[in-house]
Write a protein that binds this DNA or RNA. Structure first.
Lengths: 134, 134
DNA sequence: CTTTCATGTTTACAAACGTAATCGGTACGC
DNA sequence: GCGTACCGATTACGTTTGTAAACATGAAAG
């Protein structure tokens, strides 16, 4: 409704972005600024959603402060507020913290052991390593 | 990469383990077999839970087939059914798929760029790489 | 035996999530 | 102007999650 005059808790409200919401974010990150219909064009087929679902997700993302609306005539243009890199970083860190005791090397070790790393992956990582070591 | 020698048991565990449930799983993975009270001894302080909460989580994990109960006198001993490595692998793969297009090297690149890798991490990864390259 | 403690089971209940239909306003065609 | 299609907002509803109390039951203590 109108104004929330709840006691201003200054917590940064780390409102998590849910999995479904994330799909919408990806569309916005890819394309920059979109209408609800355009977002649906991108995600509805793959996820089997209706436009209504996308609208709901967009509203929730606005509430969470993850995206931003700008009026464009009679409709809205939506665009991401949070950066993809920040989101990705946060999620990665959460995983590493939760499952690997905060040690990224453990994650790497796990991927290596699970043979989830292709030759290309190894080469790429090796190159990155060499790059950083300079 | 699938072997057909395994018995009929290969249910793909469709039920996700939630974050709270995961804390309980960690206790069981660490200690092998525990009573509800013992699980609580391990997790209740850090998470601020009551024994009742742990009991609920244990029940849900049993329902989900993630843990197993064996009667021990009048109470139950709980132990993990799914392996930690499997869980960790599944979660890691989910993250890599969702955020890094299924390419683990992208995750590594991200961690590297975000400077989330310490000198020790780099050294460890380098060692692992060298090991795998042999 | 009866009271009490320990322990699993059932029930509770709010918040978040997934998914969507419906409502209310308005730009556009006629 | 008037209806209509289109759009965001509101409402809906079942499920999962987080968190826990109430209940039942058997064991232990007295």
């Amino acid at each position: 409704m109108a104004d929330h005059d709840e006691p201003r808790d200054n917590s940064p409200t780390p409102d998590r972005i849910s999995e479904a919401e994330h799909a919408v974010m990806e569309a916005l990150w890819m394309r920059g600024t979109l209408t609800a219909t355009e977002v649906c064009d991108i995600v509805c087929e793959t996820r089997g959603w209706s436009l209504a679902t996308v609208k709901t997700l967009l509203s929730r993302l606005v509430q969470k402060g993850a995206i931003d609306t700008r009026p464009d005539g009679r409709r809205y243009l939506y665009s991401a507020v949070i950066e993809r890199a920040d989101y990705v970083g946060g999620e990665s860190r959460r995983l590493v913290d939760r499952l690997f005791g905060g040690r990224p090397a453990s994650l790497f070790a796990h991927l290596a052991e699970a043979e989830a790393l292709s030759e290309d992956d190894l080469a790429e990582i090796e190159a990155l390593l060499k790059e950083m070591r300079k």
